[in-house]
Amino acid sequence: MLRILAPTDFSTDGYNATLVAMQLARALTAEVVFVHAMAKPPVPAASPESLFRSVYSEEMRKTQVRLLDEAQHLLDILDLRHAEVRYKTLVVPTPFADAMLQVIASENIDLVVMGSRGSSQLKQILIGSNTLELMRLSPVPLLVIPSYDVFDGFDNITILLEQMKLPERAGIEMLDSIAQTYNAMLHFLILTKDGQQVQDVSELQDQHSSWQHVLTRPHTTNLLADSEAPTGMRAHMAATNSSLVVLMPEKLSIWEILFSKNLSEELAVRAHMPLLILPHKV
């Protein structure tokens, strides 16, 4: 069974992402793991150890109850029974990134679903935030959901290729599952330079490429000159009615550079749609 990690800090920004996580779990027959990374309780440094343990235990109990209440609230909102979507809740008393990586490994997570505020300035959303931190570090695909997004499935998916190749990435199987579940049309958008041409994206795969099964699904191949982005991107999104964009940055160490590009800002901010980040294979 697929397993979806849904981190939550109980904020309104993250609420929509947890809602989407439950909807995806129902569609994919997956289990949701709700996780809250709990900070240390505010106890004066000079306090006895027994006081710290007492306050800590009480904070853990309250947070666990709140997490269970939120999960039940999501079931009620979606009119779901517990049997329709399996879930579990975890409170991890470590910093956010460490907590998420720990849970990804221990719970065999296949996909992480997180929210973003959708501000007009991308760096204000991501740089220094929990979302960007997990983008840098997650070994599994990350689905970023704008707080204002109204989820209605993914019937048209744009896959952005920033080079003339289909890179090997973690999460291609997850992308394939999503495409199959929602009977999605895939739109490969290839950024080109110096008049490069390709008739079909399948020409770019290696003989043993993990993209082979994905490419058996209905798809289109679209070329966009670097000089025409991001204007051409807006036209592509409108023409294909895309509801999800797949990004595959070249290096995990240059997230800040990637997300400072005009094209990426168009995708993440002005396009107002979810992003699926496929990381390098570990």
Rank of each mutant, 00 (worst) to 15 (best):
L134P: 04
I254E: 14
A37P: 00
P93K: 07
H73G: 09
V35G: 13
L189Q: 06
K193I: 01
T29A: 14
T158I: 14
A37D: 01
M38I: 01
L78P: 01
E203Q: 15
K40F: 02
V112G: 12
H219M: 03
D149W: 15
S11G: 09
R169T: 13
H219E: 03
L191A: 02
S47I: 00
V282K: 13
S147I: 01
G115Q: 04
I254V: 15
R81M: 11
P93D: 12
T192M: 09
E265R: 15
D206N: 13
Q207D: 07
S243G: 08
M38K: 10
S106P: 01
P141M: 02
A71Y: 05
I127T: 07
E265K: 14
L74Q: 11
V91K: 05
F34N: 02
H213T: 13
T220N: 09
L67Y: 06
F151T: 03
L111G: 07
P95R: 06
E31D: 15
I145G: 01
V55S: 02
T63C: 15
L166G: 06
V246C: 08
A37W: 05
S129E: 08
S202L: 01
S202M: 05
M233C: 01
G115E: 03
Q196V: 03
A97N: 03
A235E: 11
L142G: 01
A30D: 03
L101Q: 06
K62I: 15
D176I: 03
E266N: 09
K88I: 10
N130L: 03
R270Y: 15
T63K: 12
T158L: 11
S202K: 11
E49V: 10
H236R: 08
L189N: 00
S57K: 12
A83I: 05
D200Y: 10
G115L: 07
A37E: 08
V20F: 02
I104F: 04
L122K: 05
E162D: 12
L263A: 06
L90R: 15
T94P: 03
L247T: 05
P95E: 05
M114Q: 07
Q197I: 06
L5N: 04
P141T: 02
R270F: 15
L142W: 08
L223R: 11
I190T: 09
R270L: 13
M1E: 15
L244A: 09
Y56G: 00
H280N: 11
D194C: 01
K40V: 00
L68R: 12
F96C: 11
V201T: 10
A184L: 05
V198F: 10
A238Y: 12
I127D: 08
M185T: 08
N222H: 14
E107I: 02
L5R: 04
D9L: 11
R217C: 04
P139Y: 05
K251M: 04
L224P: 00
L74Y: 03
P95N: 09
V92D: 09
V140Y: 00
I109W: 14
I104A: 06
S106H: 10
A105Y: 11
L134S: 03
Q64Y: 13
R136Y: 06
L111R: 02
A27L: 02
E250S: 14
D155L: 08
V65L: 13
T240C: 09
L19A: 00
A25K: 12
S243Y: 01
M237N: 04
E107H: 13
